[in-house]
């Protein structure tokens, strides 16, 4: 049975912050539809409002004009239909790995809780670590626990705010494969903000390119490649060139892709 839950719609959304009595526009007329079960990445330079947009989807930012809808319903505050993985793992240092994964499962019975914790630790390949403390984990492991915590409450949409940004290059590529595996397995919508264009192409069905001051969607690029994707294939490189073009990095500096 196809699951149609986890559709996100943003309609003519604009947001401003007031700085020193001046209104500063962060997002301008954003229109975006993310279909159920899709993997969409938002890329853009610093200050383009992509994190603000993700916070709006999460329900942490409530003052804006326009609409932000999940399955046709207006987003009012955070909810268990959405999970979040931040750039810093944000595990609570006084809780064990298991207790951290169970953090959002307050309403469940002990037994159900344990079952979900075991299931999700196993999912991210960390079974046997439930009684370790976050300080004993490496960066990549901690981030996997954070992903397990976000998935344990069974969200329809997983929001990822530069989740791999703090990891070294190799761990990062490994974690990209892990994210893809989890996405294929869980069949939920994933929306990720990233700086890394390779990461965006590797993972997404659609790459949303934003530009700054004010933050607007410049272009949405489809990535119709089959999975798992080969980072060295000519199609991959072609799409990369297309994206880099948007940042005016395409022709002049073919090897510079750091944003």
């Amino acid at each position: 049975m196809p699951n149609n839950k986890g559709t996100l719609e943003i309609r003519s959304l604009s947001k401003s912050f007031i700085v020193d009595n001046n209104s500063l526009q962060i997002l301008n007329d954003i229109n975006l539809t993310v279909h159920s079960g899709a993997f969409v990445t938002i890329v853009g330079s610093s200050g383009c409002g992509k994190t603000t947009l993700l916070r709006i989807m999460l329900g942490l930012e409530n003052h804006y004009t326009g609409e932000a809808l999940i399955d046709g319903k207006q987003i009012i505050g955070p909810g268990s239909d959405r999970g979040i993985v931040f750039q810093d793992h944000r595990l609570l240092p006084w809780l064990t790995v298991g207790e951290n994964v169970a953090f959002g499962l307050d309403k469940l019975k002990r037994k159900e809780k344990k079952l979900l914790v075991d299931e999700h630790l196993k999912l991210v390949g960390l079974n046997g670590f439930e009684s370790a403390y976050p300080s004993q984990l490496s960066g990549g492991m901690a981030q996997r626990v954070a992903i397990a915590r976000a998935l344990a409450s069974k969200p329809e949409i997983l929001l990822l705010d530069e989740p791999l940004g703090a990891l070294d290059a190799l761990t990062r590529m490994y974690m990209q494969q892990e994210l893809e595996r989890l996405w294929l397995l869980e069949k939920i919508t994933m929306i990720m903000v990233t700086h890394d264009i390779d990461e965006a192409i590797y993972l997404s069905d659609k790459v949303v390119i934003m530009s700054s001051r004010p933050g607007v969607i410049k272009k949405i690029i489809d990535v119709p490649l089959s999975r798992p994707r080969n980072r060295a294939s000519s199609d991959f490189t072609r799409i990369k060139a297309e994206i880099l073009e948007e940042f005016h990095l395409g022709t002049e500096y073919p090897f510079a892709y750091a944003i």
Binding site: L58, L60, G77, P78, G79, S80, I84, F86, D88, R90, L92, W94, L95, F103, G104, D106
Partner: peptide, 24 residues
């Protein structure tokens, strides 16, 4: 960051004090 995490999970009042504020 911890307070933000708590608001994502909808913890308020006594639960917030017990689960985040006092341990931190």
């Amino acid at each position: 960051e911890y307070l933000e995490l708590a608001s994502v999970y909808g913890f308020k009042g006594l639960t917030l004090i017990k689960k985040i504020i006092i341990p931190a």
